[in-house]
Simulated scan of single mutants.
Amino acid sequence: MAPVKPYRTSLDQGNAYWMARLADQIYQCQPGGRHPYEQGILANLKAEDPGFLSVHGVSKNSAQAALVEHESFLTLVFRGTDEGWDWLDNFNAFSEQALFGAFHRGFLRSALDL
């Protein structure tokens, strides 16, 4: 499979493939919990590309994410809407100014939780 091109800003097959793979993997949970299953995610990614180095998962309030380290790039992967509270955040769609622009308020609050 094509590699990630971290500085490419237009559509790229490798970027699209790996971002989709990472988005799929973030839904793996620790047994009996909501926390991302770091070891399982890393094992699956390394089976396809040995350049993956680590996965650091976070779960707080209704937000879950993982920082995925590859020898060539870092990616912060968020879970999407998968429970009732997430849908309530989605309805909180008003924008809010923060950092360098305007953000969906529900997304911003989840990001700040993490």
Rank of each mutant, 00 (worst) to 15 (best):
D12E: 14
V4M: 15
P6W: 13
N44A: 11
Q28G: 06
R8Y: 14
A111N: 06
A63N: 10
L22S: 11
S110F: 03
V77K: 03
L76T: 11
L42R: 12
E38L: 00
G32E: 11
E96S: 09
G14D: 08
Q13F: 15
E38G: 00
L74H: 12
G84T: 08
V55S: 01
M19S: 14
L53K: 03
W87Y: 14
P36V: 02
Q25C: 15
N15E: 04
Q97H: 12
H70E: 05
Q64G: 05
V4D: 09
Q25D: 15
D24E: 15
R34I: 03
P6Q: 08
T9Y: 11
E48R: 10
W18M: 13
G84Q: 10
M19W: 10
Y27V: 01
L45P: 00
M1R: 15
D89K: 10
Y17R: 14
A65L: 12
A16E: 14
L67P: 00
E69P: 02
Y37Q: 05
A47R: 03
R105I: 02
W18N: 02
A47I: 03
F78S: 07
Q28L: 13
G57Y: 02
S54M: 01
G84C: 05
P31T: 06
G80E: 01
M19E: 14
W85D: 11
A102L: 14
L42E: 05
T9I: 15
F78A: 11
E71Q: 08
D49Y: 05
A93C: 13
T9H: 13
E38H: 00
R34C: 01
L88W: 04
P50Q: 05
V68W: 03
D86T: 03
W87N: 13
V77D: 06
D82E: 02
W18I: 13
C29N: 09
R21W: 07
R109L: 14
V77N: 07
D12L: 14
F73Q: 10
E71S: 04
A66T: 04
G106V: 06
H35N: 07
